[in-house]
Structure formats: structure tokens, C-alpha cells
Design a protein around this nucleic acid. Structure first.
Lengths: 217, 217
DNA sequence: TAGATTGTTAATCGATTAACAATC
DNA sequence: TAGATTGTTAATCGATTAACAATC
């Protein structure tokens, strides 16, 4: 079902939207209130046609000869991604990565507010990390249900990830952002977004290897 | 140029290879020395045909009716990604994310060894983070050149990222793993792999929004 | 041998790029 | 008006999926 002229969008397009948002905020900050697809394309190293196609998914129309209204676009993208209304989230696993994520300044801008962290290490439980309290992992399920939390972030080791996912599902969590390098098993009604650092590193390593070969080293 | 029967691979395929590697190590650990594409596909929620296509890029051939030799595959994938010979790396930016990356246990398995960290904060410089010394950012370029470091990791705020990239390029770094949400300008000879958390979060938010709509909330 | 599993060739699908009419 | 820039329709490109012959 589609609302307000929004069109269905490919995953690729959705992944590019945050970059548009950052750029548009910068443009606005520079005092410009109109921008063309060509300008955006130049700054993000994208084709102007692709920029127009991407922006079209938000339902916003530009004006020929003029371009797009910057504020209109910003609002439309935020709305499209659901970043203009804050959703509460739990995070499980308070190691280095967990702490980094709790302190991630992007969350506020992206409609996510981490309201509690969970761990199984007695020495960490009870601590306050960047204003977020660490609770025992055993309480996650019950609290998620009681507080109607819909987003869970897994920043725990691979071995613990599936059990954590299970308790998140049990607590009614609908979307899991998974940083553990495991393919989680969850009901089809639950969304899982995998964020595996090894993937990006693989691409980097491969390309570096290709270059080395070409150079003949 | 291609070596040892290796074929050119799509980025998508390369991103899937680390998951195969993790799985194959687990299979080996369980004492099995042969595995079929169907088995792999089941465990990773991938099509068996795609598994065979992906594995073909490494140059390894399976045996009909039998499957693939696990150890052979592991070695071939590691070799394909260049993960079997360690490359030294510098990391710039020692905030929460930087610390998480320095402590990232995956690096060792993935052929990367962080040998120094850099920051501009006097209070951090000189510290030892998980066995890695923090040096002043101004020294990065010179040290990279002297130590022939080829990989740079940027975990600094967006505003500082371009300047850091510039000094990495100046120091002869050939591949940059960029965690700052900025499109870096570098010579075409330098590889940049962007790792923007906002991208994954955008996909998660969008899907969550779609579900909410369907449910009618 | 018969059957399972492979690698390859062809078909489908989806995303990007190109061409161009519409319009401010 | 003339020209710049848009949105749309068509063409291209690349990746996934299907069909099937080869083979252990």
C-alpha cells in the first residue's frame, strides 16, 4: 500500500537516501533553498538521472529549469525512512562495539533512541554507558514486551546471537539490526538487517589484491 | 589478469564469501571434510545454484555426487580475498568506533593487522589501546610512507575525514576503509570502501515502516 | 549401473543508463 | 520565447534463477 505519492523503492535506492539527506542539510546550511539533480550528482559522484529516479520514490516533484526545493526534499526523505518519529530500541552486548553503537551520534538523527542495554557480564550490569543503563540479558524479553520496544540491536559475539534474537522475538521485537556474523533464524514477520564488517573488508581486500596484481607486485 | 583459474567476481559475490568461510570452518570443526552446495545453501539461506556460482570464482571445482573438499575451499577463498597474508594498517580516529575497530577480533582472521592509531586529541595521544599506540595525527603521512603501510581506516568525525584521507594518500596508502559519512575525494588509483551505518539503518527503518503500514498501525 | 551433484548455457529479473517529450 | 531541467518510456547492463548435459 502506498501513501502520498510514494513509490516502491529498491534496496539500493534506500541505501543511497541517507547520503542525499546529509548533502541536502549541508546545502540548506549554505543558504541555498533550491538544488538540481546535476548538482547533487556531482557532489555524491552519482549520475543525475539516478538522482532523479531515487528522489522520485519520496513522491516529491522538482520543477523543470529550477530543481528541487531543499526543505521539501529533506522532509520527504525523513518521512519516507520514518526518521522523523523516534522509535525506542534495545541493544544487546556491551563490548567495544556495543559501546560504540550506544554512543553513535547518528541514532538521534535517524529516529532511533537506545533506551536500555543488556549484557550477561556481572561486572558490566548496572553500569551507565553514555546515559544508558546496562541490565541483565535475562530481562530483555520481559522488558521489551512491557515497554513495547520494536527495535533490537545485537552487538554480541556470534555464539550468543541466536539466543538473543530468540528472546527479542519472544519480547515482541519486530526489527533486528544484527552485527554478529551469523545468519539468524527468526519468524518471517521479523525483519533482520545484517551488518557484517567482514563483507566490506572482503571487498576492500579483493580490490587491493587486484591492484597489486596489475602493478605486478 | 587472472591466476590459477580464478574468475572475475561481482561485488555481491565477494560480499558473500566471508559467510561461506565462517560456515566452512564450522563444518570442518564438526569433522566433515566434504560438503555440497545444497547443504551450504540451506545453512546460509541461499540458493544452491548461487552457491556454486559464487564458489566457482575461487577456481575450485567440486566433484559430482560428492561435493566440495572443505579444506580446499577454505584455502581458496582466503587466497582469493588475500586474507592469508597479513597486511598492516593504520587507523585514524580513536573515539568509540575507533576503539571498537582496534579491538575487532575479525581483523586477525582477515589478513589485517592494525599497527598504529592516530588522533588529534592530546589526552588520547600516547595511550595504549588493546596493544596499539595512539600517535599524533600529524605523523600519519610520514609514518605510512616509511613503514610502507597500504591500508588506512578512517573512524573520525565527518568534518575531519577528507583531511585524513588526503594525508593517507600523501603517505602512499592504497586502500581506505571509510566509516565517516562523507564521500571522499581521492585519486582514482586509491580504493575507498565506504562503511556507512546509516545505510543499513535506512533499510531497517524502511522495512519496519512498510510492515507497520501493512498491519495498519 | 543409477542417481546425486556438479558446471555451463540460456532465460528471467531488476537496476542503471540513455533518449526524449513535457514544462517552467 | 529559448533553454535548462524535469519525469517517463525504452534500451542496456548485470546478477540471479532455471534448465540440463556431464560425470563421479
Amino acid at each position: 500500500m502506498e501513501a502520498m505519492g510514494q513509490k516502491s523503492a529498491s534496496i539500493q535506492t534506500i541505501r543511497r537516501l541517507p547520503a542525499y539527506l546529509v548533502l541536502l542539510r549541508k546545502v540548506l546550511h549554505n543558504g541555498r533553498d533550491v538544488v538540481s539533480s546535476a548538482t547533487i550528482g556531482n557532489m555524491l559522484q552519482l549520475d543525475a538521472i539516478q538522482v532523479r529516479k531515487d528522489l522520485a520514490v519520496t513522491g516529491i516533484e522538482g520543477k523543470p529549469k529550477v530543481g528541487y526545493m531543499v526543505t521539501e526534499l529533506i522532509e520527504a526523505i525523513e518521512n519516507f525512512l520514518g526518521w522523523n518519529n523516534t522509535k525506542e530500541a534495545f541493544i544487546a552486548g556491551v563490548g567495544n562495539l556495543g559501546r560504540a553503537l550506544i554512543g553513535y551520534p547518528g541514532f538521534a538523527k535517524h529516529g532511533v533512541k537506545v533506551i536500555a542495554a543488556f549484557d550477561d557480564d556481572e561486572r558490566i550490569i548496572g553500569q551507565d554507558i553514555s546515559g544508558v543503563e546496562v541490565l541483565p540479558i535475562g530481562k530483555l524479553s520481559e522488558l521489551a514486551e512491557r515497554m513495547h520496544v520494536k527495535i533490537g540491536i545485537i552487538a554480541a559475539p556470534a555464539e550468543a546471537a541466536q539466543a538473543i534474537a530468540d528472546s527479542m522475538v519472544e519480547g515482541g521485537i519486530r526489527a533486528i539490526w544484527n552485527f554478529a556474523p551469523v545468519k539468524l533464524s527468526v519468524p518471517t514477520t521479523v525483519i533482520v538487517q545484517d551488518e557484517d564488517l567482514a563483507q566490506g573488508l572482503a571487498v576492500l581486500s579483493y580490490k587491493l589484491g587486484q591492484i597489486s596484481k596489475e602493478v605486478g607486485v
